[in-house]
């Protein structure tokens, strides 16, 4: 069973704690351009969405990488990046349909979420449970149940 880094945008408050945690975990300082996760906020609508690599099963970045720098970890299902094999061709950046792979000129790194090796910092720092590190079969449980509770409330009201 693999873990999914599940996003719940309806719970996101737009606080950027996840970005800060990610930058700090990887570089020991706070630089937005170093984060592998980014939050976008639409102020008029009051809606925020965190975005990071989804570790696609049929990953375009994997098929395009010429050196195997991007490779799948079979146990965790995470697409990992090997800095030594990477030639910085940046084809992965070109091909990710979600924009979740980036090239950071400051560090010379390809930036994509690596689940922090199995203990994602962003999940620990999110104060709103908008990020959840959860078994793939249980990924949508909290959302399904939250909505199911509305039925419970509605029925209880007429009992």
């Amino acid at each position: 069973m693999a873990k999914i880094l599940m996003i719940h945008p309806d719970k996101c408050t737009g606080c950027h704690n996840c970005e800060l945690a990610c930058s700090f975990a990887h570089e020991g300082l706070f630089r937005p351009g170093d984060s592998r996760i980014h939050v976008y906020t639409w102020e008029r609508e009051g809606f925020s969405v965190p975005m990071m690599c989804q570790q696609c099963d049929d990953a375009p970045c994997l098929s395009v990488c010429p050196t195997g720098a991007l490779h799948r970890n079979p146990e965790t299902n995470v697409v990992e990046w090997d800095a030594d094999k990477c030639i910085r061709c940046r084809m992965c950046v070109q091909v990710c349909p979600f924009g979740n792979v980036a090239y950071d000129a400051v560090s010379g790194n390809i930036l994509k979420c690596d689940h922090c090796g199995g203990d994602p910092e962003c999940v620990k720092f999110c104060p709103s449970k908008a990020l959840e590190y959860v078994d793939d079969t249980l990924a949508t449980r909290s959302r399904k149940k939250a909505f199911a509770a509305k039925f419970k409330k509605a029925f209880q009201e007429v009992e």
Binding site: K11, N17, G46
Partner: peptide, 16 residues
């Protein structure tokens, strides 16, 4: 509609 937080906030007192 939902709570909102400022930069680095863990309290989220903002009201959308």
């Amino acid at each position: 509609v939902r709570p909102k937080g400022c930069f680095s906030c863990i309290i989220s007192c903002g009201r959308v």
